[in-house]
Design a protein around this nucleic acid. Structure first.
Lengths: 200, 200
DNA sequence: CCCCGATCCTAGCACCGCTAGACAATCGAG
DNA sequence: CTCGATTGTCTAGCGGTGCTAGGATCGGGG
């Protein structure tokens, strides 16, 4: 049955190709340019093969979103850990980790605008805050929670605090990218957000 | 020249009808359902008539967005003023006004999801944070600023503070409406945001 | 070796935003 | 009052979209 295994491998490889190509195309020219025709042409197959892997365009967007969520979670953990070496429990140490976390989040959104759109602006058909939420999304939230739980304050649930902090970051990310906020003051906005919301 | 004036009035009336119908249709069935064909059918004209009033669909979305911005600004001022009667300069008074402002903002987004999308999620072809930003949008920001300037704190520019506060509200609004946040805790999130960000 | 099932593509559906050009209604001049 | 010009509106169509039915083709198993 080795031949079937090979086919399965090739099929999985092609699926990765589809997702990667969709992401590339979206980052290059925006999601509007990601049509099933163009996508099919780039992977050098006809349109219908897309539908043998995904139920439709929404599911392709969803796949990109999932991939992005995993990357975002990893980057958030990396940034927090890197900022946490040395003075870990001190006031400056904790605040430094939170600042690094916020910066990493906004940085990700700026460097991967199309992926960020797939995750939060477009309809990728993904469930949130429900029991059938994909693991990668829950893990992204968890990555935030791990650092933010230390600055939620005595009287506030860490989960609730994380939601609010996340929403603030999300607002900054989207409004900045849409040109709704002046570009120069990004760092000052992060400082303000962290210094007010985080309790150390 | 009364006949020309009448025609001009009728034309302006039809333009209002287009915008109002687009808004209705969007609130009823979402912006995806607002196609030029359906919109034309509802106003009982043919498609090309739309293009004699607007450059394209984007401009129609933009018109709905502007209308929404004016309404939002009015509601924000109303909520702040209503909460400000009586104890205006006290600590509880100021915080009450800010809380009312935040609630009014989130309430507007929840009651008018399609209009909110037109303002901030969709491309209505509107400029932001630039010199040619439409008056209604600048006025919306000003409505926030009027109340928030009192809680920015000594060391923080009111404009910067308003940007951050606004971004937080925007994040809460969009994530809530996309089902990305649990529905029950909205009030607690507002309380947390106000009590941490606002300095009294 | 040949058949049959899996795999892929061609062709097409209904819809989209938008526009050219035909047609009708209305206005102003003689 | 008539007639040409202007204004306004509609029909029809273009190139594009997401998606799918049905036929061709290719390769493994009996």
């Amino acid at each position: 049955m080795s031949v079937q295994e090979r086919k399965q491998r090739e099929r999985a490889e092609r699926e990765r190709l589809i997702v990667a190509t969709a992401r590339e195309l979206a980052e290059e020219q925006g999601w509007d340019a990601v049509t099933t025709r163009r996508l099919a042409e780039r992977i050098e197959y006809s349109q219908p093969v897309l539908y043998s892997h995904f139920r439709g365009k929404r599911e392709i967007i969803g796949a990109v979103a999932l991939q992005g969520a995993a990357e975002l979670a990893a980057e958030l953990r990396g940034a927090s850990a890197e900022a946490g070496v040395g003075a870990s429990a001190s006031v400056e140490g904790v605040r430094g980790r939170v600042t690094a976390l916020a910066r990493a989040y906004l940085d990700f959104a700026e460097r991967n605008p199309a992926v960020y759109d797939a995750m939060f602006q477009l309809d990728g058909g993904l469930a949130f805050a429900a029991e059938d939420t994909p693991e990668a999304l829950k893990d992204g939230f968890a990555a935030l929670l791990e650092t933010l739980r230390d600055v939620a304050g005595e009287d506030v649930e860490p989960g609730l605090f994380t939601e609010v902090f996340w929403a603030s970051l999300h607002g900054l990310a989207t409004l900045t990218r849409a040109g709704r906020l002046p570009v120069g003051d990004a760092e000052r906005r992060v400082w303000l957000l962290v210094s007010r919301l985080a309790v150390v």
